[in-house]
Design a protein around this nucleic acid. Structure first.
Lengths: 354, 354
DNA sequence: CTATTCTGCGTTTGCGCTACCATTGCGGTC
DNA sequence: GACCGCAATGGTAGCGCAAACGCAGAATAG
């Protein structure tokens, strides 16, 4: 079996073959491929026919080389929570396709010793047009420095820390938390307990603030007995809920600031012989996989991660297109995406006389 | 601000610049870049110094064009379960890096009308060296046909359907299920209940078979009262567990054939006033996120998805390397990966006298 | 001490494509 | 009829890199 040393990979039809087959120049084929104007309809069809007949596929590398850009967008990956990456990909992939970009995932984790230097090399050799950086990488200073050093356009998603020059997509955690609280108030709840997250986590404060906003706006004072600390873990949610439900009078609703703790609160409610949502309403935040894996399914707040990813791609693509066309205007630096209140089965009006 | 029409993207140091700076030819720089032999150590260092000084990064497109292959591996993506893709990426990314490949994710979903024709175009224009195909895409005939048509080397992961010519990575669900059952037997359990999955799902049968194997090997007869149907959902697990726990004598252990149902069984156990694992052992299968999000944490079987992805990349890379070197040997067509028994807190010996 | 390898490096060539400019032909303008 | 403008196409010159080959000079053999 003969093995050509070069180009032994593909069928081998090049633009020239197509040109010859169609009786035109390679240039015209190129124009057809790129849907440029100024090609007579008849010619265009002839070329397209030749393309089909030869089963020709343009060589991306050659095209990228000639155009001096790759239409690759990098996704800097470091094992975020499981549900996250899944949705992220959906949103990003869709928008990438629309915008004509390809998504290349590169691992950015601390898996290796010298990864902080390796990341620079990676960015340097990968020829991305730009990168999007989801959590937790988006808050890694070393990575951000490397991206800056490589002078790569980028968009961060849900960063904890804000940086002047760094465009990003953020959510309205505070407003969402406020809306959730308002929803509970509208159901008629007044003794609404809140399970906080760990101090170290940026979202903990924002979500708590939203709760406070709504309670105050409703003319209710914050009752320390209704506010329990938590660590965003199931276990901590169990303890917090136990404490809250042992108090007198007990709350009619528990707003846990993430889903894991909410799921725990439901379990603890059951152990306290309470019907959910008849006797006790429990709501969460995040809409993780668990929220629908349990019963009753959890009323919660969903971060539209897919949307955020899509917007990130869009922002980046806009910037790249502008850059290509020589427009140096900075473009927007920040988009806020509105979270969604997902009402399921774990919330209801408080019991009569509750 | 001047805008060059070409090559306005990068810093611009090319291999020639480096060569000039180091006082050698471009060819020598290339040799250094590719770690080829026959370069004097002093020269090598001089070149590397020049590379550093100019902050040179080789142009991937040019390199790929010259080499007639891309070192891109495509991941055909269609929104599998959330935890899955996350682990998949970890494994794939790591191995890709080691093997010098880049991972490009392409959406393969039914998001659009004519996606089945679009997938062909995508494969044709993406210049992948090969693709890996995780579930659920790996069982999509249209995609497989397109991959075949494009003559692309590929490896499937956990396919439901087996195909002669199609290399794949599979797990030993049956053996794993058998091992889990043996583990329960070793703990001293005899009345071990099993909650099945839906008939439509390939894994349902295999997992049940493994349970049967172990029970028979232990000389225990299958008791229909200990076998409950399920649908892999929390809700169905709740019902199945309720039925099982209402029987007399009730089982001392429940083996749910996936985690969601196991979590439900734990909740139902609590409602039956049973201590887990003191009064009742509950184990699952899959090791989803939920398995550790609850308390007690679930004893379960973990499919080493990351490992499977890594092996898939390795198999593919091997094949590509062999192909490049002109070795037409087929290589292995199938690897079986051993699942892992994860013992956590939901399993214990049966109660005394149980 | 010459013949033969081997090492280390340079020169040339071309991967497949597109940007840029030239060219052709056609219709209209003065 | 010479002139211009425009649409449709072709020619040429790279993009940055690596393969193939060549050619010195050093190392080894005989």
């Amino acid at each position: 079996m003969s093995v050509k040393t070069r180009a032994n990979k593909q069928s081998g039809a090049t633009i020239k073959d197509v040109a010859q087959h169609a009786g035109v120049s390679a240039m015209t084929v190129s124009r057809v491929l790129n849907a440029e104007p100024n090609v007579r309809e008849a010619t265009r069809e002839r070329v397209q026919e030749a393309i089909r007949e030869l089963n020709y596929r343009p060589n991306l590398s050659a095209r990228n080389l000639a155009r001096a850009n790759t239409y690759f967008i990098g996704l800097l990956y470091d094992n975020p929570s499981a549900g996250y990456i899944s949705e992220l990909l959906i949103g990003a992939l869709n928008r990438c396709r629309k915008a004509g970009y390809h998504l290349m995932v590169e691992s950015c984790g601390a898996a290796e010793q010298d990864w902080e230097s390796a990341i620079g090399d990676m960015l340097r050799t990968s020829n991305f047009d730009g990168v999007i950086i989801p959590p937790p990488v988006c808050d890694n200073e070393a990575v951000l420095a490397a991206v800056d050093a490589a002078n790569l356009p980028h968009v961060r998603i849900s960063p904890d820390t804000s940086r002047e020059t760094s465009p990003c997509i953020v959510t309205d955690d505070r407003t969402a938390s406020q809306r959730m609280t308002e929803y509970l108030l509208e159901l008629g709840h007044r003794r609404i307990a809140f399970i906080r997250g760990p101090e170290t986590h940026g979202a903990s404060r924002t979500r708590f603030d939203g709760y406070c906003d709504a309670m105050k706006a409703a003319g209710l004072e914050l009752d320390p007995a209704l506010i329990a600390p938590g660590e965003f873990t199931y276990r901590s949610g169990l303890e917090a809920a136990d404490a809250l439900l042992s108090a007198e009078p007990r709350p009619t609703a528990i707003f846990a600031s993430n889903d894991d703790m909410a799921v725990a609160a439901i379990a603890m409610g059951h152990r306290h012989q309470l019907d959910i949502p008849g006797d006790l309403t429990v709501v969460g935040f995040d809409d993780t996989q668990t929220a629908t894996a349990i019963w009753p399914q959890l009323t919660t707040v969903r971060q539209p991660i897919a949307t955020m990813a899509a917007e990130a791609i869009e922002m980046l693509a806009d910037r790249l297109d502008r850059q290509r066309s020589g427009d140096d205007a900075a473009g927007e630096a920040r988009r806020e995406i509105r979270s969604e209140l997902i009402v399921r089965d774990s919330s209801a009006p408080p019991p009569a006389g509750g």
